[in-house]
């Protein structure tokens, strides 16, 4: 394994990992960071050019720039928060489904049960 050490503070490790893998593919085993330094771990078969490329990417890394996965996670979180804000109200009232067909009433029961399970999971019950 080749390890390239860069002395630099503050990295967005997930984004740097994503950038390196996009550029160098399977040659990248991962990235580590500790106080004041970043280590890029490369496979044995890397070329000198790839080592240099990894060094340039790590040195020029902008910690403020998010990886696609981080952007997607933030978008998912915002969507969920919006749904919680807009849709959360009183729990499902099964009495409102009393006159419906047996199939629809059963579906309402299932949804009410799932609602309770989700609430329990979120509250750590």
């Amino acid at each position: 394994m080749h390890t390239v050490i860069i002395e630099r503070p503050a990295v967005n490790l997930a984004a740097l990992d994503s950038d390196l893998r996009a550029a160098l593919g399977a040659a990248v085993l991962g990235v580590s960071a500790g106080p004041g330094r970043v280590a890029v771990h490369l496979a044995d078969f890397v070329t000198a050019d790839q080592v240099q490329q990894a060094r340039v990417i790590a040195a020029g890394h902008d910690p403020a720039r998010l990886s696609p996965a981080q952007q997607a996670a933030i978008a998912r979180g915002q969507k969920l928060e919006a749904a919680r804000r807009d849709l959360r109200g009183p729990e499902l009232d099964l009495a409102a489904y009393a006159g419906q067909t047996a199939l629809l009433a059963r579906l309402a029961q299932k949804i009410a049960w799932l609602e309770q399970e989700l609430l329990a999971l979120r509250e750590g019950l």
């Binding site: 394994m1 390890t3 503070p9 490790l13 997930a14 990992d17 085993l29 991962g30 990235v31 580590s32 960071a33 500790g34 106080p35 004041g36 280590a39 771990h41």
Partner: peptide
């Protein structure tokens, strides 16, 4: 007792520090 926590994405064993 450091100035930053340690992080890794390495799928091969590497030194923590």
């Amino acid at each position: 007792n450091e100035t930053a926590d340690y992080t890794t994405t390495s799928t091969a064993f590497v030194d923590v520090d």
